[in-house]
Amino acid sequence: MSWDAEFTHHFDRCADSMRFTAFLLCGNHHEAEDVVQSAFLKFYLAGPKPAQGGGLDAYLRQIVVRTFLAERRRVRWKREKLTDVMPEVPAAGSLSEDRLVVWKALSAVPAKQRATLVLRYWHDLGVEETAAALGCSVGTVKSNTSRGLKALRQRLGPEFGDLWQEVSRGA
C-alpha cells in the first residue's frame, strides 16, 4: 500500500478521535481543528517511516498533544478576549450538563496539566505512555497529574467531587 493510501485510510479512521482529543485540550472547535490539521500535516510529512513501527494512533496522538503545547507556548500572551459573539457551545442534548461543567473547568487548567489529564484519564494511558507522548519524565507526568487534578477539583468545587474521572470514563 502506498503512503498516500495508508495516510488516507488512517485519516478516515481516526480524524474524529483526534479532533475530540484536540477539543478537550483546546476547549473550542476552531482551535482544535487547527491543531489537528497541523498534526496531520506533520504526520504526513514524516512519511511512512513511523508507520513501519506500528502504533500509528499513539504516534498521531503524540503529535496532536505536542502541537497543542507548542501553540500554547508560542502564543502565551494570547488570552481569552471579550467579544460580542457568544462562545461556541456543543449542540443541545449531545452532552450532559455535568460534562459541560467539567470541560469548562478543564479549559482553565494550565496547558501541560490539561494535556496530562486528557492523556491519562480520557485516553487511559499509563504514566510511562503519557511521559513518552509528552516527551517528559515519569515524575513530571505524576506531578502534572496531581497539580491538574487539584486545579480541576478547586475549579469544580466540592459538590462535583471526582466528576472528572466519571466523565472521562464515559459514565
Rank of each mutant, 00 (worst) to 15 (best):
S146P: 00
G55T: 01
L41G: 11
L41R: 07
G53L: 08
A108C: 14
A151M: 00
V138A: 13
M1Y: 00
G157C: 05
V64S: 01
W103L: 10
V89C: 08
K142R: 14
S94I: 09
Q165S: 08
V36I: 03
R99I: 07
K49S: 05
V36K: 06
E80C: 14
V101T: 09
T83N: 08
E80F: 12
R13T: 15
E33R: 09
A58T: 12
D34K: 06
C26W: 06
V89N: 12
M18V: 03
A5N: 12
L25K: 04
D124A: 07
P48S: 12
W122F: 10
L25C: 06
A22D: 00
A32R: 08
A5R: 15
G53A: 13
Q165A: 10
L163A: 13
G54Y: 08
G148K: 05
W77P: 00
W3I: 12
E88V: 07
T145L: 01
K78A: 14
R19A: 11
D162I: 03
D16T: 13
E129F: 00
R74D: 14
V102C: 06
M1W: 02
Q154M: 07
I63F: 02
V141F: 01
E166W: 04
R79V: 09
A58F: 09
F20A: 10
T116L: 00
D162F: 03
H10N: 08
L149E: 06
S94P: 00
T8D: 14
Q62S: 15
R73Q: 13
V75N: 15
K49V: 02
L69Y: 08
